[in-house]
Design a protein around this nucleic acid. Structure first.
Length: 137
DNA sequence: GCCAACGTTGGC
DNA sequence: GCCAACGTTGGC
């Protein structure tokens, strides 16, 4: 199963905000690589919700509730977005520092490409991160 | 708040 | 089509 990670700046859109809404159109992705990743998402795929900025960490788990469709607010018609739904909160947020400190995670785009805001997470890394975050069943 | 990394834009 | 300049993101 494919796993993903999306970043959000908490002052802009936080995990708190995400939980208080049912479905959130994931707008504002204006990077082709990130766009390509979003287009590869399927309904039901799970997505880590990551806070950038101060105390960067994986804080929550979302599910794709609608796969990529054109962003109606985009005049250039170049960009798509997906809808995300909050699933559960990490009992133990996984900090970027701890991810960087673990040799198993050195290949992740999160470590190697700081500026990419939507990225795939391979199965092994996903399972380990999932355990570390201790999501309630 | 600063600075490094990197993606995008635009001139040639 | 290349490359320099610029803007933005995000970690510290």
């Amino acid at each position: 199963m494919a796993g993903w990670l999306v970043k959000s700046e908490p002052h802009d859109w936080s995990w708190q905000d995400q939980q208080e809404t049912t479905i959130e159109p994931w707008t504002g992705v204006r990077n082709f690589q990130a766009q390509n990743n979003m287009r590869a998402m399927k309904v039901g795929d799970l997505v880590f919700f990551y806070h950038s900025g101060k105390n960067p960490a994986i804080v929550g788990l979302c599910k794709v509730s609608k796969s990529a469709y054109p962003d109606p607010s985009d005049d250039t018609k170049r960009f798509c977005l997906v809808d995300l739904k909050a699933v559960s909160s990490a009992a133990t947020p996984v900090s970027l520092a701890s991810i960087k400190a673990d040799p198993d995670f050195q290949h992740l785009a999160l470590v190697k490409q700081a500026r990419l805001s939507v990225m795939p997470i391979d199965k092994e890394a996903w399972q380990k991160l999932y355990k570390m975050a201790a999501f309630p069943a």
